[in-house]
């Protein structure tokens, strides 16, 4: 049989005939379905979503709780730290650091004296606070 009877494109077309059987494709499809199922993410339920969010929020909540606890403990041990009636500890620290302790000026003293006089006159007239 003569071997020198083909052209290149014709020879390369022979490659198109090298194909597997139909049975191969059935097996291939079944295997692919399994693999695709394994890489497909499962649908997420709303409850699962909630749990995920709770888990994400837990560290933040825990940190907040610890900070509140620390502030409360500090307040019990050092009442001036958070007292509203006493000169504020933090404010004092700040003013002493910048050397600007607040003082009453003359107008303030006048206002204070005026208020005290009004209270005294009201008390004298029988008004009880």
């Amino acid at each position: 049989m003569n071997r020198k009877e083909f052209n290149l494109s014709q020879l390369l077309q022979v490659k198109r005939y090298e194909m597997p059987t139909e049975a191969f494709w059935d097996e291939f499809d079944a295997r692919l379905q399994q693999q695709l199922a394994s890489v497909t993410p499962a649908p997420i339920s709303p409850i699962h979503n909630l749990v995920v969010w709770m888990r994400r929020l837990f560290p933040v909540t825990a940190i907040c709780m610890v900070m509140i606890g620390m502030l409360y403990a500090l307040g019990v041990q050092h009442p001036r730290f958070i007292s509203l009636n006493q000169p504020n500890m933090l404010a004092s620290c700040f003013y002493s650091s910048v050397d600007q302790v607040p003082t009453l000026n003359d107008k303030g003293i006048d206002n204070l004296l005026c208020s005290q006089k009004k209270v005294a006159s009201l008390t004298a007239n029988g008004f009880h606070f």
Binding site: E5, F6, Q13, V14, Y17, E18
Partner: peptide, 21 residues
């Protein structure tokens, strides 16, 4: 590792191989 030719008769016809061979 080659696949067998799916249709040998068809390939032979396509290549105009000697029918009397």
């Amino acid at each position: 590792a080659l696949e067998p030719l799916a249709n040998e008769e068809g390939v032979a016809e396509f290549l105009n191989l000697d029918k009397n061979a």
